[in-house]
Simulated scan of single mutants.
Amino acid sequence: MAGYFSVFLVLLTLGSGLIWLVDHLVYAPKRRERIAIAKGSSQADLDDDVIAQIAPVPAITEGAKSIFPMIAAITIFRSFIFEPFQIPSGSMMPTLLVGDFILVQKYSYGIKDPVWRTQLVEVNEPKRGDIVVFKFPLDEKVDFIKRTIGLPGDRIVYRNKRLYIKPNCAEGQEKSGEMFCAEFNAVDMDIINRDEFYQGLMPLVRLKETLPGQTHDILINPEALESKGRYYQQQDTRADEWVVPEDSYFMMGDNRDNSQDSRMWGFVPKANLVGKAVFIWMSFEFENGPDSLLPSFVPTGVRFERLGSIQ
């Protein structure tokens, strides 16, 4: 849906801009000429109503001239600077909740044209721990949001609800025969609480997970079984192990037992990156129960304490 809206904005901007340009170059000079002739042959000043009758401006031209600056500004802002997104599911809990409205920084990982998404300018690469919006590799009409766990060349293991990372060799380091120069590092986890979030009646464990240079919170359902049979199977690796290809990334949700992510469908190509989630600008509560008179999509409150930068 977001992709169609981008195309619509671009077409509306081009269409209104073209109408304004053609009028400015072709028809506006002719109107001014008619007005000048009328003023020269009249002894009295012409008021606006008379001028409008002598050289009327078509309604489509007036509309294009009025909306073009605003639509052009919106298109540039949304396509190249920031784009708003709404969090539709709980896969990124506790970091992002259903009802959070976020801003995604579009230029974080390169500037792309808004229609064909061709890379125009190279900027930065995602860092481990970045929360990224991207086009779902299996259906690029759908936008996903997950956390970057694996960078190109990393070896990732997710076993017994614990994450292990064997980073790719840093630039300038001597690479071993397996193309890796570090041992597997178990990502540190510390329990925060066990009674803040629930899945049905089952309490979820909130933990602080520490990636290199970045700390964030995750949720684990201790009763949920690992679905290794549904994991994406990469050639020449174990069922719960993946090697991130070149120009690709391994993404995971923070709600580890309730997230469809790279464990299930594989890697996110660099070309699919949309931008980095950086700010929560609004957060609504939706607590309409089955007996409520209000529809489920009507918010019941605002979580002002959630507004601010995304960690």
Score class of each variant (00 low, 15 high):
2 A>R: 15
8 F>T: 10
10 V>A: 04
15 G>C: 12
17 G>P: 03
18 L>A: 12
23 D>C: 08
23 D>N: 15
24 H>P: 00
25 L>D: 02
29 P>D: 06
29 P>L: 09
30 K>Q: 14
30 K>E: 11
32 R>M: 06
32 R>G: 05
34 R>C: 05
39 K>A: 11
41 S>M: 14
45 D>S: 10
52 A>Q: 11
53 Q>V: 03
56 P>I: 07
57 V>S: 02
60 I>T: 07
64 A>Y: 05
64 A>M: 10
66 S>C: 05
69 P>W: 04
71 I>R: 08
72 A>K: 08
76 I>V: 15
77 F>N: 02
79 S>L: 13
79 S>F: 04
83 E>V: 12
87 I>D: 04
92 M>K: 14
97 L>D: 04
97 L>R: 11
98 V>P: 03
100 D>C: 01
101 F>T: 01
102 I>N: 05
103 L>F: 06
107 Y>D: 05
108 S>V: 05
109 Y>G: 00
110 G>N: 08
111 I>N: 06
113 D>M: 08
113 D>L: 14
114 P>K: 11
115 V>R: 04
116 W>H: 12
137 P>D: 07
137 P>A: 13
137 P>W: 13
138 L>F: 09
139 D>Q: 10
144 F>D: 03
148 T>C: 15
149 I>L: 06
151 L>Q: 07
154 D>R: 12
158 Y>E: 01
161 K>A: 04
165 I>W: 03
166 K>E: 09
170 A>W: 03
173 Q>S: 12
175 K>W: 00
178 E>T: 11
178 E>W: 08
180 F>A: 14
182 A>Q: 11
183 E>W: 05
185 N>W: 06
189 M>E: 14
192 I>R: 08
192 I>T: 01
194 R>M: 13
196 E>W: 01
199 Q>V: 03
199 Q>W: 02
201 L>E: 12
202 M>Y: 00
206 R>L: 08
207 L>F: 00
210 T>L: 07
212 P>F: 07
213 G>C: 13
219 L>D: 00
219 L>G: 00
220 I>F: 00
223 E>L: 02
225 L>E: 01
226 E>N: 00
228 K>V: 01
229 G>A: 04
229 G>M: 07
232 Y>K: 05
234 Q>N: 11
243 V>Y: 05
247 D>A: 14
255 N>H: 13
256 R>V: 04
258 N>M: 09
258 N>D: 06
259 S>V: 05
262 S>F: 03
264 M>I: 11
264 M>A: 09
268 V>L: 13
271 A>W: 00
278 V>A: 06
281 W>Y: 15
282 M>N: 11
284 F>E: 05
286 F>G: 07
289 G>S: 13
292 S>K: 12
294 L>E: 04
297 F>S: 15
298 V>N: 03
300 T>E: 05
300 T>F: 06
308 G>H: 07
309 S>M: 14
311 Q>A: 12
311 Q>Y: 09
